[in-house]
């Protein structure tokens, strides 16, 4: 492997950018493709497919054999609100392979005793997210019920293209939220991306059950991303 390729690949991974190492198994030469870089021809199609499916694979192109090793950033779940649901959702999400980040400016909620071993910021979302920005590999769950805290985070998540955006609250609460976001200038196509009421409809009652419903909905969004992209192309 080319040392420069390794450095570039690791740099992309540190910066949470999707990258792929293409190795020609015939001569051992390799190069890094960052998602969005143009790659022409059949190899380009294979590269695009690998990014979309998150599957590394060996491909034959024009009589040459290439290995495509995809490196997508690990999914991160950002919870707005250090609430009872978050206490159940944080350990479940970690078990499912997510990086977890909890943000809540209310220090009584955001106490390390309630969330041991989890990255927790007792700050306003604008401050915490400025330091640790959202991206397409983040899911955001707004769980405070407080528009002052939830709304700016929801807007940031829609702006950043998070693969999942969900907000706690009844249909009535959400209708008011839609009005506020519309008044703030968020386009309706973006507002429609907010999952609300949050979570799959499994009749969840207790906070841990709601956490299961939310995590299931997030995993569904994560694993169907490729399909959504394909649907988009066909349309």
């Amino acid at each position: 492997m080319d040392p420069y390729a390794l450095k570039k690949l690791n740099q992309c991974r540190r910066e949470r950018r999707a990258a792929l190492l293409v190795t020609d198994l015939g001569d051992g030469r390799d190069r890094v493709v960052v998602e969005g870089d143009p790659v022409s021809g059949l190899l380009g199609e294979a590269v695009e497919k690998a990014f979309r499916s998150d599957k590394s694979a060996t491909v034959e192109v024009d009589g040459r054999t290439f290995f495509l090793n995809v490196h997508l950033p690990p999914p991160r779940l950002v919870m707005i609100g250090a609430v009872h649901i978050s206490q159940a959702l944080a350990p479940m999400a970690r078990m499912a392979g997510f990086d977890v980040h909890i943000i809540d400016p209310r220090t009584a909620f955001a106490s390390p005793e309630r969330f041991s071993g989890v990255r927790l910021d007792a700050e306003w979302p604008e401050e915490a997210l400025a330091r640790s920005p959202l991206d397409a590999y983040c899911a955001l769950a707004a769980l405070t019920h407080d528009p002052k805290i939830d709304d700016p985070a929801l807007m940031a998540a829609l702006e950043a293209g998070c693969f999942y955006v969900g907000a706690l609250g009844s249909r009535k609460t959400h209708a008011k939220r839609v009005e506020r976001l519309t008044a703030a200038g968020v386009p309706s196509s973006a507002i429609e991306r907010v999952h609300a009421p949050i979570g799959l409809a499994i009749g969840a009652a207790s906070p841990p059950e709601i956490a299961v419903a939310v995590l299931a909905e997030i995993i569904e969004a994560l694993r169907s991303r490729g399909l959504e992209a394909r649907k988009g192309e066909a349309a």
């Binding site: 390794l6 690949l9 690791n10 977890v100 071993g117 989890v118 990255r119």
Partner: peptide, 21 residues
């Protein structure tokens, strides 16, 4: 300052870069 409390699993490609350096 908030602390990064989650531990990163040992990452072979990061290790390779460290060894190279």
């Amino acid at each position: 300052m908030p602390e990064e409390v989650q531990s990163e699993p040992l990452d072979p490609l990061m290790t390779a870069e460290d060894w190279m350096k």
